[in-house]
Design a protein around this nucleic acid. Sequence first.
DNA 1: GCGCAAGTACTCGGATATAGAGTGTCCGAGTGGACCGGG
DNA 2: CCCGGTCCACTCGGACACTCTATATCCGAGTACTTGCGC
Lengths: 170, 170
Amino acid sequence: MKLSEGVEQAIHSVAMLASLEADQVLSAAALAEFHGVSPSYLLKHLQALSRSGILGTVPGPKGGYHLAQTPEDISLLDVVLAVEGPEPAFRCKEIRRNGPNPVPEGFFKAPCQINAAMLRAERSYRAELRKVTIAHLLAEVREDDDGTLAARSCAFLDANVRISNQSRQH
Amino acid sequence: MKLSEGVEQAIHSVAMLASLEADQVLSAAALAEFHGVSPSYLLKHLQALSRSGILGTVPGPKGGYHLAQTPEDISLLDVVLAVEGPEPAFRCKEIRRNGPNPVPEGFFKAPCQINAAMLRAERSYRAELRKVTIAHLLAEVREDDDGTLAARSCAFLDANVRISNQSRQH
DNA sequence: GCGCAAGTACTCGGATATAGAGTGTCCGAGTGGACCGGG
DNA sequence: CCCGGTCCACTCGGACACTCTATATCCGAGTACTTGCGC
């Protein structure tokens, strides 16, 4: 029961991308350097986010990534599922049908009680993540910020933002 | 984000152990055969449950495992944490302090907003698991059972239960 | 001088190596019962 | 026949291999800019 490190990188990257204007993009290399992580590894997760429709890409020089949805529409759950995959954490192997005296087939119509309880808990987990959007996170950060964090982000954006001459698409 | 297979084995084993009387024990080998899983691997998790105080052990021949708490006091969360470990699934690496322009130290007094949101979700997950006890699970199973499952368990218990001459302890 | 075309540099994308944890196995410490010998 | 001691078989316990996924990396496809040539 542990989440990939890529989840944290992905969330930070999405939050950063949420700060730029329309028709602006950031390269994966810039995001990786800013966060001090492996460029290739971050790229892998950015691609997953792109496949999930959270990010859009602009190929070629001066290309990069941008949000494909508004920050209000992207929840933490969307990002986590894009990176970790959609399958639930608890996968019932139905070991009741193993062994010398397996449970008869008829009982498999209803899901195992244990599986049901575990999935209930995971639904609760996902519901909590669904409530939090990228917009919420940014608002919280701004609330506690005296300007230092904003200045840091702006400096990075000024140095690395690129204006794509393609209209925003996904 | 995925749970070990041992979690399922552990929960089924605890549920089985909940069905036996005081001063009765079951060997790890019997539980493994009944569930059709690797004896050595199940043993590993039973030991973890023992270290966590959920199970008690009786060494020597005619020894085995028994519950160290009542089924009403053992929640699914207890079992999951014993097998998977207590640390949360999302471990914030604070990548904000990485890179060429790290966030100043002062901001680390408060936890990262992202970390806070992820931990909130996990608290919800754990709360849901805490609500479900082994006693609840057994009651649910009995409710849907026409006698087949009960007969299966009884047959196994009759063949494998051992009466320990030690008083129940942990 | 202007337009066009080829070359180039930089981007994302997927296929490919490596490391760590989950999975599976083995051997050792300890204990209760069984057996054997003595009383 | 009864009792004590020794041996043995079976248990849990922790230390040791193996496998698979998460991690980290590299090379290939595609595109916009640059540069050179022709008109």
